[in-house]
């Protein structure tokens, strides 16, 4: 069952998304942007799961299930993270990640 788009394309897309996410995670200073970067990473994994499921084991559903679970987890995580960010903002009046460095030595 060939849909015309080779598996490699999906993988390249996922890799690009993954590294964009990592790059964003490492370089952005805004906590919201960092959270978004994390979402990118998660979704890149999702794409991989679905792609592998479709191309390698079309008669099984584990990949799709994992994709669903990750979406659910990501939603929950986003809720928690945003709650934390709001609290950080109230506490420090900033959401710049460099200013939030109380948890050290």
């Amino acid at each position: 069952m060939n849909t015309g788009i080779p598996l490699e394309y999906f993988l390249i897309l996922a890799s690009v998304m993954f590294f964009v996410g990592i790059y964003g995670f490492l370089t952005r200073r805004n906590l919201i942007t960092i959270l978004m970067s994390v979402e990118l990473v998660l979704n890149s994994v999702n794409i991989n799961f679905l792609a592998f499921n479709k191309y390698l084991f079309p008669d099984q559903f584990q990949g799709q299930f994992f994709g669903l679970i990750i979406i659910a987890v990501a939603a929950a995580e986003a809720a928690v993270a945003i709650a934390i960010i709001i609290n950080i903002y109230r506490h420090f009046t900033t959401i710049n990640v460099e200013d939030v460095d109380q948890m050290k030595f």
Partner: peptide
């Protein structure tokens, strides 16, 4: 060596990655 524990989240992440 406690300088490693800077509190900078992104430094940790960078080291990790």
């Amino acid at each position: 060596i406690r300088g490693f524990q800077s509190g900078q989240l992104q430094k940790y992440a960078f080291v990790f990655v």
